[in-house]
Design a protein around this nucleic acid. Structure first.
Lengths: 123, 123
DNA sequence: AGTCGATATGTAATCATTTTCATATCGACT
DNA sequence: AGTCGATATGAAAATGATTACATATCGACT
């Protein structure tokens, strides 16, 4: 195989965390998490999607899928009226985000703790 | 029919762990991990790919990509000869798997610890 | 020297995901 | 009543990932 590209080969650990149904189909992951945070900040799904650089269509579909998976609404949607409409987070969504963040922090700690050991073993 | 202890809306946490280069997407994840384990067991990439239900082409490409990312070989490949050829793990690959497993165990524990709390917060 | 079966690798075809496009609805405000 | 901008949603187009196919190489063993 090719010779190593020196420092380019410095790898690190990454992980993904998401909610999944028994069916195996997961959806509420990092993407949705970010999306929800942006909706919270901007008050609009459209603005959130734009900010994150994904299509409105996908953002909308992701939220819908997540809500179907969870069985409860994540956003309060309003159309028409001032500004054309808006989306806000439900209390449940806020709780979900809070729990998600806490878990992420735990995972980060676990990763950090294991990282040195990992590099030692694989160097 | 049985009383569903878990409704269709009962979700649970899942995670993925992988190695990534600074450049971008990583490759040595669960799939490659399983693939390497199977190569170790079967002594052949072809047999491993078949067992896992993925194409030989993809399996081969995954290993190659991983090796390029890491900068060292994961398998010792031989073609021709008895049986047509074989693939075996390098010592570094074995170390990598061992480290990966250990880390996975840590992550599992972290998840487990956080799960009850998570469900409480999101119920 | 020829067979066999696995590795090696390019390319076309297929399948999955995401974006684009298109069109409808809603409601506060002119 | 008509405008505006965001939500709602289907369908086509584009992108990306994976498989299928095709062909070459290698080397122990007949």
């Amino acid at each position: 195989m090719k010779p190593p590209k020196s420092s380019k080969n410095d790898v690190f650990l990454r992980y993904k965390l998401w909610l999944s149904a028994v069916s195996g189909e997961g959806i509420v992951g990092e993407g949705t998490h970010l999306l929800l945070r942006k909706i919270e900040e901007k008050g609009s799904l459209k603005a959130a999607a734009e900010f994150l650089g994904i299509s409105y269509r996908k953002a909308w579909g992701d939220i819908k899928k997540s809500e179907e998976l969870l069985g409860y609404d994540l956003t309060v949607k309003r159309r028409g009226g001032i500004g054309g409409g808006q989306s806000d987070l439900t209390t449940k969504a806020k709780n979900l985000l809070e729990a998600y963040d806490a878990l992420h922090k735990k995972m980060d700690t676990a990763i950090e703790e294991a990282y040195a050991e990992f590099k030692e073993k694989t160097k």
